[in-house]
Design a protein around this nucleic acid. Structure first.
Length: 206
DNA sequence: AACAGCATTTGATTGAAAGG
DNA sequence: CCTTTCAATCAAATGCTGTT
């Protein structure tokens, strides 16, 4: 490619300025966004769709060609499952403590699905572990989940219907699953009691 | 070679300041 | 108030890379 690490052409004075200031890569939003996106196995298009922005915006933001508005960045951070504060907070500083109380687990679910992330403050996590809670009737949605990596889980309480590809099964307390996340999958609580489980997956997609 | 899936660039539009 | 300017954003076009 004709691309060096220097960008100019039609870039305008603002960008040359930024390059001249030599802001470290891990303090710029572009590389940060890209890292968070790729860690989740999302394409620019998929992230853009979830965040309600265009794929071009994502591309330009990731390259630091533009400095996104707070509104756009908030939408993108939300689509990645982090708040704006967490988006920036994860850029620097070591993790405060190896321990977390139950209340400190980072909630990244919505609706009737609660997903509590262990070690959410770790900036370079490669492991993902979640405590999941499905209210009666809760569902990950008719659009099957599909992403890179593999995941497994253990049901602690209640029952849940798990769909993996063509296979469907209701799992109960003590039952478990393990599958490649590239296979379309879905979780539904068909019962009238909440279901609780612990899952782990890799790479860390949240 | 043709295709698919992705990233990047292009050109136009929008909106928000700055200056009369 | 109107005009100018400039950055952010968008849809669409283009470019890149790996696969069949």
């Amino acid at each position: 490619m004709s691309v060096n690490d220097i960008k100019h052409v039609d870039g305008g004075a603002q960008l040359e300025h930024r390059a001249a200031l030599e802001i470290p890569a891990d303090e710029r939003v572009g590389p940060r966004l890209k890292l968070l996106r790729e860690r989740r196995g999302l394409s620019q298009r998929e992230l853009a769709r979830r965040a309600g922005v265009t794929n071009a915006s994502v591309s330009q933001i990731e390259q630091d060609r533009v400095s996104p508005s707070v509104a756009s960045l908030r939408k993108l951070a939300g689509a990645l499952g982090v708040s704006l504060a967490e988006f920036f907070a994860s850029q620097h500083g070591p993790p405060p403590s190896p321990f977390q109380s139950a209340a400190e687990l980072l909630e990244i679910g919505s609706g009737g699905v609660s997903l509590k992330l262990v070690g959410g403050a770790m900036s370079a996590r490669t492991l993902q572990m979640l405590r999941e809670h499905y209210e009666a009737g809760a569902d990950t949605g008719p659009t099957m989940l599909q992403h890179a990596g593999e995941e497994c889980g253990l049901i602690l309480r209640g029952a849940i219907e798990v769909t993996v590809g063509a296979e469907v099964r209701v799992l109960r307390e003590g039952d478990a699953f393990y599958f490649a996340s590239t296979t379309p999958h879905r979780f539904r609580n068909l019962g009238d009691a909440p279901c609780e489980l612990v899952t782990a997956s890799t790479p860390a997609t949240f």
